[in-house]
């Protein structure tokens, strides 16, 4: 991207933020019940899962990868935990098992990408299929798994409110803070940013690139798993058919909309928050307006398109400066 990221330039993040504010103001003025504390909390609550998944995806994307298996990991691992708990395993033990298996998934992904050098987009796609198939065959018997009675307290915890803020929003925000701190104040975080920026330099300067890639996918898998647990706590079940939905596209949308560069190294937690915010406002507004689900998708797509078109006018790319293989 080069010099265009200089300080005088308007970034995509700012555009999306402006768009969010615009929509927010428009909805507040035109829609009854939009600008109410209850609704605003509901707004954030509805996108918190998406936001957490977005954070996981951002870790992968910033490190110059992508994790298309994140939704599958989330769904299948959570379903397994629920199913284990349903068959009498103590909930915490079950969760620990899910945690471990998610980490293993991350390690396998990382090894495939870092050591076998399979392109990330492809490795994660194939792994999504493997995870789903393996889980359905061995771990999870049914399509829809409910939170068992032995863990009904999690339902309470998931829907509780702390200091006026729903717990899953608290989870989301604290998670965001955690990831932000990871990128800013820890060595692995810095390494990931640098690897995404310039993998050649990263290798020469002495960053353990391959172990860091493994770490990156372990982090994204675990984030997915955490999102799944929070989701189960919130709605009380996990539908494994979700794997076949287009949810992973929504996750990418949230991340990239906020301005995280798909070519790595650019962006951070703030961008994910901005992207999540816009989608949240949009979905919430449309729900209030009672827009049918099908049209909601249409509008979501159009908004995404508008955001990237505006970005292309603000930050024009030309043949002399464009990067090769930058899709």
């Amino acid at each position: 991207m080069g010099p265009r990221t200089g300080s005088t330039q308007v970034t995509q993040e700012q555009i999306v933020l402006a768009l969010s504010v615009l929509l927010f103001v428009a909805f507040s003025v035109t829609l009854k019940g939009f600008f109410a504390p209850g609704n605003l909390l509901a707004l954030v609550q509805n996108v918190s899962i998406l936001g957490i998944l977005g954070l996981g995806m951002a870790i992968a994307i910033i490190g110059r990868g992508i994790d298309l298996a994140i939704v599958t990991t989330m769904t299948m691992m959570t379903a397994w935990v629920l199913s284990l708990a349903g068959h009498g395993t103590p909930p915490l033990t079950a969760a620990a098992a899910g945690f471990c298996l998610s980490a293993v998934i991350g390690i396998v992904l990382g090894v495939l990408i870092a050591y076998v050098e399979i392109p990330a987009i492809f490795a994660t796609l194939a792994m999504a299929s493997v995870i789903y198939g393996f889980s359905r065959m061995v771990l999870v018997g049914e399509d829809l798994v409910y939170v068992p009675p032995s863990a009904s307290w999690t339902r309470v915890a998931g829907n509780a409110v702390t200091l006026g803020v729903p717990n899953n929003v608290v989870f989301f925000l604290s998670f965001a803070a955690l990831v932000a701190a990871f990128f800013r104040f820890t060595k692995p975080g810095r390494f990931l940013l640098s690897m995404g920026d310039n993998p050649f330099r990263a290798r020469i300067v002495g960053i353990p690139v391959r172990p860091m890639i493994v770490l990156q996918y372990v982090a994204s898998s675990l984030t997915g798993f955490a999102a799944g647990l929070i989701m189960a706590m919130l709605i009380g079940s996990m539908n494994t058919r979700q794997v076949n939905s287009t949810m992973v596209y929504d996750v990418i949308l949230v991340v990239v909309l906020g301005g995280v560069g798909l070519s790595g190294g650019r962006g951070g937690v703030r961008n994910v928050l901005v992207g999540t915010l816009l989608i949240g406002i949009l979905l919430n507004g449309m729900t209030i307006m009672d827009v049918p689900y099908i049209l909601q998708n249409l509008i979501k797509g159009l908004i995404l398109l508008v955001a990237i078109i505006v970005d292309s006018f603000v930050n024009p790319r030309d043949e002399q400066t464009s990067q090769q293989g930058d899709i």
């Binding site: 990221t5 920026d197 050649f200 990263a202």
Partner: peptide, 9 residues
Amino acid sequence: KVEGFFETQ
């Protein structure tokens, strides 16, 4: 340019 520095940093 290719392996000397991190350009966003």
